[in-house]
């Protein structure tokens, strides 16, 4: 296991959704040290939407130098992360996972907590699309 774990940021239109999914993912990543997870949900004034500022703050908060994997929910959450990445407004080593929000978040946090590197954490989040429910 690496000393410095990959951080995970969950970006949702809703603060409650981001916080709850973060909490659920942490609970499922039992055993050993849980990787740093930050929620960036809703707008700065508590409304439904996306805040670039909250995203930047969350990424900085969990960045240990080992990379940060971002999982986002819909529309503006995804587009804002992509625009910030393109503008180099997020630390080097930050990447957006192409993943469903809740399942991707759990995969990312479990893998990051197990010491996976940034590529492994991203892959774990993205593999969630492959899990068929019927």
């Amino acid at each position: 296991m690496t000393e410095r774990q990959v951080g995970v940021v969950l970006v949702s239109h809703s603060a409650e959704v981001a916080t709850s999914v973060a909490q659920m993912a942490r609970c499922l990543a039992t055993g050993g040290a849980t990787a740093a997870v930050a929620a960036a949900g809703g707008t700065e004034d508590g409304g439904i939407g996306t805040s670039a500022e909250l995203i930047k703050r969350a990424v900085r908060a969990v960045d240990t130098g080992a990379g940060v994997v971002v999982v986002a929910d819909l529309g503006s959450a995804v587009l804002t992360v992509k625009a910030l990445l393109e503008d180099k407004e997020l630390p080097d080593g930050t990447r957006l996972a192409d993943a469903p929000f809740l399942e991707g978040a759990v995969g990312a946090v479990v893998t990051a907590s197990a010491g996976g590197d940034s590529a492994a954490v991203t892959a774990a989040a993205e593999e969630a699309y492959g899990y068929r429910k019927t």
Binding site: T43, G47, G49, T50, S51, A52, E53, G75, S76, L79, T80, K82, A83, L84, E86, D87
Partner: peptide, 21 residues
């Protein structure tokens, strides 16, 4: 463009922000 990405709060922010940047 940078300001729009920061302050619009909907998908129009990153889209118009990207256009102008």
């Amino acid at each position: 463009g940078r300001q729009l990405i920061s302050s619009v709060g909907g998908a129009a922010g990153p889209l118009y922000g990207t256009l102008l940047r």
